[in-house]
Design a protein around this nucleic acid. Structure first.
Lengths: 339, 339
DNA sequence: CTGTTAGCGCCTTCAT
DNA sequence: ATGAAGGCGCTAACAG
């Protein structure tokens, strides 16, 4: 049982005022006698009065709440993005509801309904690796609720987006491997449904092509980003008649799994096989050898996404044109590629 | 600008019905002609109608929303707890608002206000290491909003709590070190404000005492859990005239920082100095040597906390007695203590 | 089976 | 400077 929460009517009755006056006193309306305001504020404070945001939302049709949906938050990437976004949104007076879809399309759709029912004013989304149909996001558009994609973006939807330059990051990573003398460079890629996966693959291809290295399809494996699969594919690559002398992995967890497999086989890193990851998870600096990886400006991704959303929200009449922000990456060289 | 959202009145007008009938059709009330229900549902679907949860909350004085507040979510511990809790709460029809206080007392108090304004039906909390005054949580009690503490609990408040057996876990960890022949066992402890910090310290003390090992105050250091401090104190310990031959760290990040320092000094692990952590963060299995650590049932902490909250929420009249759940830990032995 | 009425807590005209 | 009335979207009696 929830006990009664103080309302303006309680205050009005106690003070023999109308609820209008109490409301005005509380909201700082000028037309209230200072003495009256003082009495109201004091009693409100004394009774732990909290304005009921629900009632106001019902009235204004704005909840001052933003939904953030991420596919997972076990790796530190998404939590950091969320912190960055929350910072910016809080300053602008918005609350945040966080959902995680757990890489499940169904959960994502369900969360979508939850957010609509909560009447969020806007959402920030990174979709699941399973998501190929984006109808559930179009509902937001139709209702005039702005959507901003980050990290995993959807090219077919005309909304604001924040991404890092995956292509460039991958290109530099592979070029780095080539410069250290590697020629048979494998790539463990992610599912085709993810833009960043596709862009990293393109960066990999172009780096090879521009350095006159033939692309061997046997060295490119797309997989679903689960670690046991990573294990299997790394072993598969090492068992090839002509095994790779380097591996560019779609992300750090994959690269770290690869390092494990390679070490357990007694191969030398980076001499026998070098490894590069993507993201610069904190763990990459702690393992041995340190993992060479492409760092992303994680906080900034969240901050920028929030900014783009605020920009959409600010417009009172027509929504402004969608914006696209692409942030730079940085190659961090460690022991997994250079001894 | 937010475009108009479909309401039951829109549907009622279009179909020449009263809004009550539409409401009944939508909520599955039995007293509606099947034909009518069908027409309503079809139109609702066609118009992307979503029930406005705000209006219902205003009516029922329940938001079906639970607030979860954690001090940080960069280490994987709290995210996992949140996932566990969310699972259970979602099944019971509750949404979740996640706040992180960033280990700041001020932010915690601010979040507290945010949650009250959002009219959450209950909260799950792990407080910051700075929090010594718990008045802001008592407001929830006064308003009849149940609070459940987890991980970092508050003994002075009479609410439900979930913790692991920190004392027992610490005791076993230190006993393990003693059994491997260590005698000068240092402890990097957390701030006194945290119950788990105090309990782990007690476990450490009692393990030593019960094995007739004198407790050397110089080997016990309480600190604020920031990694640069950990670095300083580990160095300090190693510089002692009689340095320790083992270190029991309050948590895994601390232990890992210690391993780094120890390795950089060229000491052998575990021969010169053994290290034990607490939590079994995923990284502990990946570094070299592997970190011996006390594993906590992380998902279960979240699930149990959610259960206790649901139990409080279920009671229609009086709140049931607060409950305390203490979950077992498990010592995971790796290379940092046994070669 | 369906319509009417009232009210959740608040803000906002419109009066006074 | 204050009060009265209406309405945000919805559900729950109460009538038919």
């Amino acid at each position: 049982m929830k006990s009664h929460q103080t309302t303006i009517i309680d205050i009005a009755k106690t003070l023999n005022l109308s609820k209008s006056t109490v409301s005005r006193a509380l909201t700082g309306h000028p037309n209230v006698k200072p003495k009256t305001r003082e009495r109201v504020l004091e009693l409100a404070n004394q009774l732990d009065y909290q304005r009921n945001q629900l009632a106001i939302s019902l009235l204004t049709n704005r909840t001052q709440t933003i939904g953030i949906m991420v596919p997972e938050f076990l790796s530190p990437f998404f939590p950091k993005v969320i912190i960055g976004a929350q910072e910016v949104l809080a300053k602008a007076g918005y609350n945040v509801i966080i959902c995680h879809s757990n890489e499940s399309y169904e959960t994502e759709v369900a969360n979508t309904r939850l957010l609509l029912a909560s009447r969020v004013d806007g959402i920030l989304v990174s979709h699941t690796k399973e998501t190929r149909n984006f109808e559930h996001f179009k509902i937001f558009e139709r209702k005039g609720i702005p959507v901003v994609f980050f990290n995993r973006i959807v090219e077919e939807l005309s909304v604001s987006k924040v991404a890092v330059d995956d292509y460039e990051g991958a290109y530099r990573a592979v070029e780095h491997l080539i410069k250290t003398g590697k020629r048979r460079i494998a790539h463990l890629s992610g599912p085709d449904s993810l833009t960043n996966s596709r862009h990293r693959l393109n960066g990999y291809r172009d780096a090879l092509a521009n350095h006159q290295i033939l692309i061997d399809p046997a060295l490119i494996i797309s997989y679903d980003l689960t670690l046991d699969k990573a294990n299997i594919y790394v072993n598969h690559l090492l068992n090839l008649p002509q095994p790779p002398d380097a591996l560019f992995a779609i992300n750090d967890p994959t690269a770290i799994e690869a390092l494990k497999v390679i070490k357990s086989r007694g191969l030398r890193i980076p001499d026998d096989i070098a490894v590069v990851g993507f993201s610069d998870d904190p763990i990459s600096a702690l393992i041995e050898p340190g993992l060479t990886t492409v760092a992303q400006p994680v906080d900034e991704i969240g901050q920028q996404a929030a900014q783009l959303l605020l920009h959409q929200l600010a417009a009172d009449d027509e929504r402004p044109e969608p914006e696209l922000v692409v942030l730079p990456t940085q190659l961090i060289v460690r022991g997994s590629t250079v001894s």
